[in-house]
Amino acid sequence: MEKFYEELIENDLDPFILFNSSGSVEKYNKKADFLLSFVSYKEIYDLAISNAPKSFGFKRTFMDLEFKESYFAILVGYLDEEYLGIKLYKKAEEENSITIDDKYKSVNLYTLIELSKNSILAGRQISLIEDYDLTIPETKLNIDQFLKLLNELFQAYSRSSRLKIRSFLKLGEFIKVENQKYQVCCIHLEGDDAQVSDEIKFLAKNTNFILTTKETATQIEFPLIVDK
């Protein structure tokens, strides 16, 4: 019976993490494995501690959380002094359905970054640190949509005194488009002043880009679709 519950948790669509009394991760399920690839366990532990029930038992707290995916509540509980568990409830969202139409053209990513960066940041006193993975080949993109999103993001960082721009391929992750798996291409921006509005997030969502923000860092992810 215990085995059954373990399997149930392991295959749950929501992440579950069990911490021991010293704050280390004791167990976690598949979804938590994915979650912990971009959020530190310390952050989740702090979240659990600050929302734990006052005495033994479980407490559900509704809150909006954004760890690449969106969550609407957490359940934190403990039955003894040994273990503390947390479960995050994922928001039911429509899956990203990317369709490649004739507006997708093969393009060099850096030329687009260059155009957008210069269009928006020219003349600004921003110290730029650029770190591009030049092995990323030309990828199919909707140029208009991509430039629009980049322009908005550079505008959001235009008050920063420094801005770090990175591009890289994400290892071990894929984006599925029309039943085909593609590597994930990322552009990461980090400055000291970011005004990434909900409108920009909305724009990204509507244009098939995955946009995540954390403090003053923003990351855009999209499939690397290479012409064969």
Binding site: K105, V107, T111, L112, E114, L115, N118, S119, A122, I143, D144, L147
Partner: peptide
């Protein structure tokens, strides 16, 4: 030089 560089890049892009 920067403006000319941008113009050259933009010449191969179908953007306004």
């Amino acid at each position: 030089k920067n403006s000319l560089h941008m113009a050259n890049i933009a010449s191969s892009m179908p953007v306004n």
